[in-house]
Design a protein around this nucleic acid. Sequence first.
DNA 1: GTATACACGTGAAGC
DNA 2: TGCTTCACGTGTATA
Lengths: 233, 233
Amino acid sequence: MQPENSELYRFLAQNGIGSYGFPANSEFPVVQSFSSSSTYYPLEMSGVTTETTPQDRALAALKNHKEAEKRRRERINSHLNKLRSLLPCNSKTDKASLLAKVVQRVKELKQQALEITELETLPSETDEITVLSCDYSCDGRLIFKASLCCEDRSDLLTELIEILKSLHLKTLKAEMATLGGRIRNVLIVAADKDHSIESVHFLQNALKSLLERSNSSDRSKRRRVLDHKIIVQ
Amino acid sequence: MQPENSELYRFLAQNGIGSYGFPANSEFPVVQSFSSSSTYYPLEMSGVTTETTPQDRALAALKNHKEAEKRRRERINSHLNKLRSLLPCNSKTDKASLLAKVVQRVKELKQQALEITELETLPSETDEITVLSCDYSCDGRLIFKASLCCEDRSDLLTELIEILKSLHLKTLKAEMATLGGRIRNVLIVAADKDHSIESVHFLQNALKSLLERSNSSDRSKRRRVLDHKIIVQ
DNA sequence: GTATACACGTGAAGC
DNA sequence: TGCTTCACGTGTATA
């Protein structure tokens, strides 16, 4: 037996409808039956037409509300059941434990996905900066993929590292390749927990200034074979 | 304002305690205040001692229940919030949508994990069968990793494929390597949706008979260099 | 008997 | 307004 003890029910009962107000302590038996039959006897028996009285509309709203809430619960539970079938657990695992397992599994899978990520790092002939917000790390921090391609110079890496340090970005994975005097760095970095998506722009601007400094130093365009490809993990 | 409209409350009110039964239509105001103060005035005022009466215990149980339910909700919601931080969605995403995203993401990650799985397939010198239930595929089917290592023979693969077909197992990934007349097959197979964990044993037995047939055919132990390594995906 | 988990109907808040 | 989402207290079943 479910509650059905709405304030509305009580209001309707206490104020009565025509001569059909319920006697005190009646426990509103007719209203109790309303929920299953969706017929509200007192109103009909008192000769009230099917035109919408305030009570009618309020009761209809309550019924709507009740059904919508049921649909919402079913939607949520159906997703939970899908998750159950995706994890090694039976159908009797309780919701909280199930969700704990899901959290754990998502973390593992994300870590695994990160570990096998292959970055394409051959340098191109045009300068290039890309900073993309890819995802969230297994501990919930924002993850960026940053790529920088420009003329190589001896202090580039040092400066790059300084930039990352100053922006509190932790390098999860890095690949570097040089070819014909040009260099491409591709980094997977994690932002601090309090960082927002806006950190993308800070990093982008910092890399832009790095690139401009590279270009201001005069260098003849050289072309060589592949010098180096370094993978740091 | 929350319900607090327990049947118990109504029972206590209607049956009254000593001379403190509530008048009809009183809306039980004292009981309403109980939930926040956890003091039940009518009992104390009627001179009932602190010894546990049935009413006392029932009310205490109700309070316990209420608090336990609150803890349960908090547990579930805390996991949901962890999931929110693991996915690209803000804190205002509603539960159902969040869970839909989680389902989607888990499927993607599992698919990705499967694609990069490296199987170790060099044959050993001892015969060997292993069938492990690893996980559930992105569409919720059981996944097995099956490994078979034995003397090679021309019709082995055909028979293996027949076994898989008869057990309604779908091969997601397979690696095969032969060395010195011996062969190792490692398979990642998905069972039908209605299959239980017991299918492991069917597969295990089928492979066992396959191995026995290999051994009954007389062959001198040959030793050669690596013949072949095939990867099917 | 106590503890735990779930579905339900409801009031409140946001849009 | 009406519609949607959430937290809550409750009844009930299971262990």
